[in-house]
Design a protein around this nucleic acid. Sequence first.
DNA 1: CAAGTTTGATAAATATTTTTTATTAATTTA
DNA 2: TAAATTAATAAAAAATATTTATCAAACTTG
Lengths: 303, 303
Amino acid sequence: MTFDQIQSFYMVATLGTYRQAAERLNATQPTISARIVALENYLRTSLFNRSGHRVVLTPQGRLFLSYAEKFLELQASVLKMTRGQDELTGIIRIGASDTMAISWLPGFFSILRKRYPNAVFELHVGPSYRLREDLISREIDLAFMIGPIAHADIASLPLCVCPMVIVAAPELGLHGRLLTKDDLGEIDFFTFERLTRPYQELSPYLKVNANSSIRLNPVNSLQTIVMLVEMGLGAGAVPQVVIEQQLKNGSLIKLDTGFELPELKFSVSYPMSPDMGVAEMVRDLSMSYLKDMPKQDSIKIIY
Amino acid sequence: MTFDQIQSFYMVATLGTYRQAAERLNATQPTISARIVALENYLRTSLFNRSGHRVVLTPQGRLFLSYAEKFLELQASVLKMTRGQDELTGIIRIGASDTMAISWLPGFFSILRKRYPNAVFELHVGPSYRLREDLISREIDLAFMIGPIAHADIASLPLCVCPMVIVAAPELGLHGRLLTKDDLGEIDFFTFERLTRPYQELSPYLKVNANSSIRLNPVNSLQTIVMLVEMGLGAGAVPQVVIEQQLKNGSLIKLDTGFELPELKFSVSYPMSPDMGVAEMVRDLSMSYLKDMPKQDSIKIIY
DNA sequence: CAAGTTTGATAAATATTTTTTATTAATTTA
DNA sequence: TAAATTAATAAAAAATATTTATCAAACTTG
């Protein structure tokens, strides 16, 4: 079975004669004839009744016509997708850390889709150490993650810096005063999972600046951390940008611990490969998107 | 664009190399190479990144893969519709674990041959970990094995559960009483080979529940295990279903160890491919065969 | 109703394309 | 660094498709 055969069959079925179909397809009548015969042999069934002066579809022919239409539609849409003049086509797999995914990524995503309507964007959310592996093994094309990362053929560009804050539900009554080391020892802390850079930076930091008996509970979902803290189960060390809403409506309040947590530095990273600069195109759009965002404390853009 | 090209692309994308795809499609490597080039020219985009030693899909390639699957599915369903309704022809390669091969498979096999007289069925018996590899490399079409297995394009459906028993020849005089830990330490045990799931599940289980000095001898043939145990060389930990006969005629007797071994869970697994549903046809017949079997303790059917 | 017209089928020659064989270059593995 | 494995390539061979020329059958029409 070939697409020529399917197309010829379709034309004969719609135009009614072999000759017309031949003309339409820039072929001769015997060519069409041969194609239909070949198709019938392949399907082991006859598609037209040629006993009369003009061709009439058989029941099997009518059934196959619906398939033929599907084949040709599929073929047309393949061409549209892959040959589309637009610069970016195909499936682009974008990785993002939790923080990025929760904060500015949704807005960027809609811009991205508008800008490159012929591409499909697949989102991979995960911790930065996993995104790094996925970049190296080429399982994603680009990642917005904590960085920059050092690797032979991974390019990294700094994007933005997000300050961390320590927050709690107002019910706990921990706000409005400078917390003592003993205060801190009483509280449960929730933050990123153990393998992540925030955990590894924060853990010694908290232990130095607070009581040594501090309880730091790693949770591998930022969404979950925010929920746990909102429910009053303890304090959370999270990037301010993901809890702007909660700070505004008062369901979470910043605590004054007397020290500052190190900021999270985000980058856009991608494998350096000689393909058409897919990653570069997404990167550039993300950088201009970030630049155009209203200035705010919780995300500082790096130029 | 031709169906040969689409199929070749699909095979390269799933198998990972041109050579393997060529083998699978009974063609030479340059043929596959030419087809892919032709397809890329037609689509005006590159589908694979061949800069390295192995081929990797480009974003466009990933997108086209989803179209290729649709094309092949459509083609398969056209053939199903116009050609023989549910006929199975050619050589179908069926994998089976030892336990399956010894117990219900022979009965099923005769049903299968009667139902599809125009097909040839090739039986591949082996441990489940090897069947898994063979499914992934498409060296078998379907397997009855311990599972379900987790893999991107392998489908797994639970089939049945088989309890394990510990048996010995009556001559050893170990039956009819609760064995002590010291008793168990005296006995040689025979069971599946080291790499298999039964061995890995059983080994710590026996060590916990019995004397730590237990001697567990792995043998890679279930048939052989049964023979060794029948000859009185030790006890065997085997699925009950394979020794029903021996239990009935008294050549083997269950031992009372005071604990139960974990059951073996069997599945039917097959590569999800857009072909004519060969695997699905065999799967469905096997499931209905198992359902119609007389109820027994040694095989519990999962619906 | 017979002549003219149109239809699709067929055979042989021709043109095109696909596949194979043999070889190469590049990359990975031991 | 040697051996093995990968895909690309060129030229020859094989297979396939198309055209030209012709035919028989079936409609049209005067």
